[in-house]
Deep mutational scan, measured.
Amino acid sequence: YQDQEQRILKFLEELGEGKATTAHDLSGKLGTPKKEINRVLYSLAKKGKLQKEAGTPPLWKIAVS
């Protein structure tokens, strides 16, 4: 689980600052079920590491501290 968090954070960091992506996109790029990706995304957002942008589907990006 920790491993997934690292992979997602790394992927988003590599996208570049301010760039956002969807759970669907992450799921495809990382070869992980979207349900699992979503769980990790919401967990990271709760920890303040990610920012969720409203929309359908929601967009995710690295939180700027």
Results as ranks from 00 to 15, higher is better:
Ala63Phe: 04
Ala23Ser: 08
Thr22Pro: 02
Leu15Asp: 05
Tyr1Gln: 06
Thr21Asn: 02
Ser65Tyr: 09
Leu12Ala: 02
Asp3Tyr: 09
Ala23Thr: 04
Leu44Lys: 00
Tyr1Ser: 12
Gln4Glu: 06
Gly55Tyr: 03
Lys47Arg: 14
Ile8Asp: 01
Pro58Lys: 04
Leu44Tyr: 01
Lys29Val: 14
Tyr42Phe: 08
Leu15Glu: 09
Val64Tyr: 05
Pro58Phe: 02
Glu36His: 12
Arg7Ala: 10
Glu5Ser: 06
Gly48Asp: 04
Ser43Asp: 10
Gln2Asn: 13
Glu36Asp: 12
Arg7Gln: 08
Gln4Phe: 13
Ala20Met: 14
Gly48Leu: 02
Gly28Leu: 15
Lys52Asn: 05
Thr32Met: 15
Glu17Lys: 07
Ile62Lys: 08
Phe11Trp: 07
Glu14Trp: 05
Lys47Trp: 02
Gly31Leu: 11
Ala63Leu: 04
Gly16Ser: 04
Gln2Ile: 10
Tyr1Asn: 15
Lys52Cys: 07
Lys49Ile: 15
Lys10Thr: 08
Leu26Ser: 00
Phe11Ser: 11
Lys19Asp: 08
Ala20Val: 08
Pro57Cys: 03
Gly18Pro: 05
Lys46Trp: 05
Gly55Val: 05
Lys34Phe: 09
Ile8Met: 05
Ile62Ala: 08
Ala54Glu: 11
Gly28Asn: 15
Pro58Ala: 09
Arg7Asp: 05
Lys46Ala: 12
Asp3Phe: 14
Thr22Asp: 04
Arg7Phe: 07
Glu5Tyr: 03
Lys19Trp: 05
Lys49Gly: 03
Thr32Cys: 11
Gln51Asp: 10
Ala54Tyr: 14
Asp3Val: 11
Trp60Leu: 00
Lys35Leu: 05
Tyr1Val: 11
Ile8Ser: 01
Gly48Asn: 09
Pro58Asp: 08
Tyr1Phe: 15
Gln51Tyr: 12
Thr32Ser: 12
Leu59Val: 13
Ala54Lys: 08
Ala54His: 14
Glu17Trp: 04
Leu12Phe: 12
Ala23Asn: 02
Ala23Arg: 00
Lys19Arg: 15
Leu41Asn: 00
Glu36Leu: 15
Ala63Gln: 12
Tyr42Thr: 11
Thr56Lys: 15
Gly16Val: 02
Lys46Glu: 13
Leu12Arg: 00
Leu41Val: 02
Leu26Glu: 00
Lys47Pro: 00
Ala20Phe: 12
Arg7Tyr: 07
Ala63Lys: 08
Gln4Arg: 11
Gly55Lys: 05
Thr22Asn: 07
Ile8Arg: 00
Lys19Asn: 10
Ala63Glu: 06
Lys10Glu: 07
Ala63Val: 09
Trp60Gly: 02
Val40Met: 15
Lys35Ile: 14
Glu17Phe: 04
Lys35Phe: 05
Tyr42Trp: 08
Ile8Gln: 01
Trp60Gln: 02
Ile37Cys: 08
Glu14Pro: 02
Val40Ile: 15
Leu15Cys: 10
Lys34Leu: 12
Lys29Phe: 10
Leu12Cys: 06
Thr32Asn: 05
Glu17Asn: 08
Glu36Lys: 15
Leu50Val: 15
Gly18His: 09
Lys47Ile: 07
Gln6Lys: 14
Tyr1Asp: 12
Leu59Pro: 03
Ser43Lys: 14
Arg7Pro: 03
Pro58Gly: 06
Trp60Glu: 02
Leu12His: 00
Ser27Phe: 02
Arg7Cys: 05
His24Pro: 03
Ala20Gly: 15
Gly31Tyr: 06
Thr56Val: 10
Val40Pro: 01
Ile8Pro: 00
Tyr42Cys: 10
Ser43Trp: 07
Arg39Ser: 10
Ile8Glu: 01
Leu9Thr: 03
Ala54Arg: 12
Gly55Cys: 07
Leu50Phe: 02
Ser27Tyr: 04
Lys19Cys: 14
Lys49Asn: 06
Ala20Asp: 04
Ala54Phe: 08
Glu13Tyr: 08
Gln6Leu: 12
Leu15Lys: 06
Gly18Thr: 06
Glu14Ala: 14
Asp3Met: 14
Leu50Gln: 00
Gln2Gly: 06
Lys34Cys: 09
Lys47Cys: 07
Ser43Gln: 10
Gln6Ser: 11
Lys52Arg: 14
Ile62Met: 13
Thr32Asp: 05
Arg7Thr: 07
Leu41Arg: 00
Lys19Glu: 15
Gly28Arg: 14
Glu36Gln: 14
Arg7Ser: 08
Thr56Arg: 15
Lys49Phe: 09
Asn38Glu: 11
Tyr42Ser: 10
Arg39Gln: 13
Ala23Lys: 01
Gln6Met: 09
Lys35Val: 07
Trp60His: 01
Lys19Phe: 09
Ser27Gly: 06
Ser43Asn: 15
Ile37Arg: 00
Glu5Phe: 02
